[in-house]
Design a protein around this nucleic acid. Sequence first.
DNA 1: GAAATTGGTTGCTTTTGTCAACCATTGGAG
DNA 2: CTCCAATGGTTGACAAAAGCAACCAATTTC
Lengths: 141, 141
Amino acid sequence: MKKEDIYSIREFDRFYMTVLRLTDKYHLHTHFTILESRLLLEINRGNNTANQLLKVLKLDKGYISRVLKKLENEQLITKQTAESDLRIKVLALTPSGKTALKEIDRRADEQISDLFKDVDSTDIAQIIAAMQKIQTELSKD
Amino acid sequence: MKKEDIYSIREFDRFYMTVLRLTDKYHLHTHFTILESRLLLEINRGNNTANQLLKVLKLDKGYISRVLKKLENEQLITKQTAESDLRIKVLALTPSGKTALKEIDRRADEQISDLFKDVDSTDIAQIIAAMQKIQTELSKD
DNA sequence: GAAATTGGTTGCTTTTGTCAACCATTGGAG
DNA sequence: CTCCAATGGTTGACAAAAGCAACCAATTTC
């Protein structure tokens, strides 16, 4: 791999790290942490066991377990032991969990809209294409 | 901004956040934290006051100040009060700071090479173009 | 020359994350 | 069938990352 390619990628990574940190501020207006929001989102889209969540998020299982417990205590999710395998607990959003997720989504969407407010629509289309390119290339393995 | 565009961008952001978290593991082989590495790098490229650093990194000034102090204690950087303005302290890498940065760079480069080891070179070129597109569009304002 | 601003430091707290030990259940090899 | 390794999840202890607010000294503004 070429030296200057590595340089460019590291440059982008540094840049995008600060973008992401700023973008994540959406949760400050809610009473959720970033990870709590992320967990609600992932559970809702079907990653509904602790094990799946830690694979998607690549975080420590102890950490995930703790935050899930907090969400359960706040009655945003339920845990139900799977019949097929008693070790597995299937997670689901409660009605108030779904409401919370909608609010979180709204804020996150707002944040993105705001970040892109000065980018014109043909450029947005190109950026999205660029993002998808990056994502598919780095996902396949 | 279109609903599905926002969706795509958020999808990418989630994806790239985990990529970055993994990539950042390079620092585990050194005894530096991510931020310490980043500070050495930014000081070296000329962002050599606390104030410039916090603008680039968009982090809390208290936090930056503390980490800089640690770097100073470890004799990786020096602070020297600017003559033109006694509030400003000009930062510089010591020789061992430069050595440390070289080692960090080497590890980080390795990490990137590794991440892209299965991506072929025409795809790499496209990814880099994509990254640069994203970066320039989001930087101009 | 007083008042507001700026660059930086410090005390305190919260958020985020790791590591290791552990328990119960399950799947597989002999 | 039984022992045993692997799996899913929980808990305790702790370290790393980051923010907030109050503050000091130098500087600028008016």
